[in-house]
């Protein structure tokens, strides 16, 4: 039986119910669970040609204006507003502006119009995809000229999780097609050309399964005796950090109703962190089945977080911290240093 995926995941659907919270005036107020939702059979209308071409033919279509020769991609409009069609002497009233554009098949190569930002904190429906980057790509025509319009598209890396510096302004990219396509902009994504072999660059269409992914995602680490002392120091500093949370209402609120099992892996040894019931507990023993792995070579790297409040997210983006996943747990932990400071702890 074919697996089906729901548009609205079950976990996002609230149960009927309500709770009571006190306002600043001390009175009680009701917060009633609710949702606004509407199902759609959303017509892709005039864009169907573009999306069907992605789905069935693995060809990216643009539109060119026969007058000004500007090439739009995505081909979001059918007519070019400033340009007029040729005069038709048989008609009393001439069309002014809005010349019909012509469909043109484009290459699967292009370049970035700007460095793409890396999204760490996403809308609710995209939380599971962070860190991700969408960038504006100008594609080439079959003749090698660049389109005028730039298409927003997901940028992926073969090396693991997306980080700043992987894709930059002017970088050449290759469009890759997903193996399973549904006729949407998500059927394609771009990969920096520098990460692909020449035969992959030459292959059209190039499919997701043609690429080896997550090449640098090895989170295993061995203990190096020269780091043991700093590893022990780091664990003790985390214990002090955890004890500060016990004295901070803001920090406890940051972790409220949340649980997580975190393995901290360093060359100075491993230890576990448990988030449970608004508290952080440092576990000196091996942690089984962690949902997050924080891996650093030098244990001192993580002192920047526990001492200086430097965000874990930033350590990850800068490449000094390796994660198996960037998720809400990390974001909640990144709130803790400021909460501790605001509570004077």
């Amino acid at each position: 039986m074919k697996e089906t995926k729901k548009i609205i995941p079950d976990v996002m659907i609230p149960y009927k119910g309500s709770k009571i919270e006190k306002g600043r005036d001390g009175a009680e107020y009701i917060l009633r669970n609710d949702a606004m939702y509407t199902g759609y059979e959303h017509s892709q209308a005039e864009h169907s040609e573009f999306f069907l071409s992605l789905k069935n033919n693995c060809v990216i279509l643009g539109r060119i204006c026969p007058s000004c020769e500007k090439i739009d991609v995505p081909p979001a409009k059918l007519r070019c507003p400033p340009c007029s069609p040729p005069v038709d002497p048989t008609k009393h009233l001439q069309q002014i502006g809005f010349r019909e554009m012509v469909v043109v098949a484009l290459s699967d190569r292009g370049f970035l119009e700007a460095t793409p930002p890396v999204v760490c904190f996403a809308p609710a429906n995209f939380k599971s995809e962070v860190p991700y980057a969408n960038g504006y790509v100008r594609l080439y025509t079959k003749e090698g000229t660049a389109t005028n319009g730039a298409m927003k598209i997901r940028i992926r890396t073969t090396t693991g999780l997306m980080r700043p510096g992987i894709a930059k302004w002017k970088d050449e990219v290759k469009i890759v097609f997903r193996d399973e396509r549904e006729g949407s902009i998500c059927d394609i994504f771009a990969v920096p050309a520098s990460e692909l072999a020449e035969e992959q660059l030459q292959k059209s269409p190039l499919f997701e399964s043609d690429i080896e992914w997550d090449r640098d995602m090895d989170l295993n680490i061995r203990v190096d005796d020269s780091f043991t002392q700093s590893g022990d120091f780091l664990r003790k500093e985390w214990m002090i950090f955890a004890s500060r949370i016990e004295r901070s209402k803001r920090a406890q609120k940051d972790l409220a109703n949340w649980s997580s099992r975190i393995l901290v892996a360093t060359l100075g040894g491993d230890f576990g962190l448990l988030i449970v019931d608004g508290a952080l507990v440092v576990d000196g023993c091996d942690l089984f089945d962690p949902d997050i792995i924080l891996r650093v070579d030098d244990p001192k790297t993580l002192l920047r977080y526990v001492h200086d409040g430097y965000a874990l997210t930033n350590l990850f983006l800068e490449g000094s911290l390796h994660l198996n996943v960037l998720n809400e747990t990390i974001f909640k932990m990144d709130r803790l240093p400021r909460s501790l400071k605001r509570d004077g702890v």
Binding site: P117, V118, C120, P164, A311, N314, D334
Partner: peptide, 9 residues
């Protein structure tokens, strides 16, 4: 020190 919500912000 605050985290990037979207790098570089």
């Amino acid at each position: 020190n605050s985290r990037y919500i979207v790098h570089p912000v």
